[in-house]
Amino acid sequence: MMEHSEQTHYFVPDPSRWPIVGSLALFCLGLGAALTVNSVAFGKLGLLLGFGILLWMLFGWFGDVIRESLAGRYHGREDHSFRWGMGWFIFSEVMFFAAFFGALYYVRVISVPELGNDMHKLLYPDFSASWPLQTGPGINTPYQAMGAWGLPAINTLILLSSGATLTWAHWGLLSGSRRQLTVGLGATVLLGFLFLGLQLYEYSHAMHELGLSLAAGAYGMTFFMLTGFHGMHVLLGAIMLSVMWLRVQRGHFSAEHHFAFEAAAWYWHFVDVVWLILFVFVYWL
């Protein structure tokens, strides 16, 4: 009877205030961004307020879910829903990056060769159909493209290593070794923040020494959009894994029940795969 009850019971939480709090946070962020871009007073204050409300919502909402899980309110069917939810979330992220990689493909493989053919020579006589673009409308200052085998290659090794340490931590969780779990997860978090630190240094080098910015034509825009959004995802993943590490210190998770850890690991491995594709098509080729 107990097994049947666990299979048919589905926990429905009480009405929550967190969705409306999240809506308020997004409103403040959007308004603050619009005011800041237009140099209107209180724009930065609106952004700061929006980020503060957003953090409050995230800690509060996920805290409620953690407390419900620790209270034993989730059974097999809830776990099934969580897995589907995380899977669709990652799929939406795949489509998000697919749009930017599609834009890079269109510009590099279709648009640039088209603008360089004989038909367009009358309109753009000085245009050179090469990648990265060095001539054309909107490119007022010369710049250098970012090479692949310096800092980007080091960052690639760092992210691949972080995937290995995370898998090692997962093995420790499955085998009951809390020390292996703690060390492996902590190393993953440190490697993630090291990646972000080196990327900030790379951006500084690109802007001040290579002359590379968002104003550097299609190459500059696609470079910073792809690497910048990926960096934001690395930051989010590192924060998620940091929370998992803190939960491990409190004795959370077991070999049988640890989907929160597993979901964060899925996300981190997704970030790793995106970087490998990005490294090949943005830096290398």
Rank of each mutant, 00 (worst) to 15 (best):
F279Y: 15
Y201H: 12
V280F: 15
M244H: 00
L236Y: 05
A265D: 11
A265M: 15
L276H: 12
L236D: 03
I239P: 02
L236T: 08
A238Y: 03
V189F: 08
E209I: 09
G211C: 05
I277Y: 15
W268L: 12
E202D: 09
S254A: 07
A187E: 08
A206R: 00
D272I: 15
V248Q: 02
L246Q: 04
L226E: 06
L200C: 11
T222A: 10
Y203N: 08
T188Y: 08
A216I: 00
L276W: 13
V271K: 14
E202H: 05
M240T: 03
G251H: 01
V183Q: 01
H205W: 12
G231C: 07
Q249L: 04
A263P: 09
V280W: 15
L226D: 01
S242Y: 06
T188Q: 10
A218G: 05
H205Q: 14
M225E: 09
M221Y: 07
F259K: 10
W268A: 12
F224I: 07
R250P: 00
H230V: 07
L276G: 13
H269L: 15
V248H: 00
Y219K: 00
G220K: 01
F195C: 04
Y201G: 10
A187L: 15
V271R: 13
Y219R: 00
F270R: 10
W245H: 06
A264Q: 11
F223L: 04
A218C: 03
T222K: 05
L241K: 03
M221Q: 08
E262T: 14
L198G: 06
G211Y: 05
F224N: 07
F259A: 12
L191W: 03
G220N: 01
L196C: 08
Q249E: 03
G184K: 00
L276D: 12
A206C: 07
H258E: 10
G192F: 04
V243W: 02
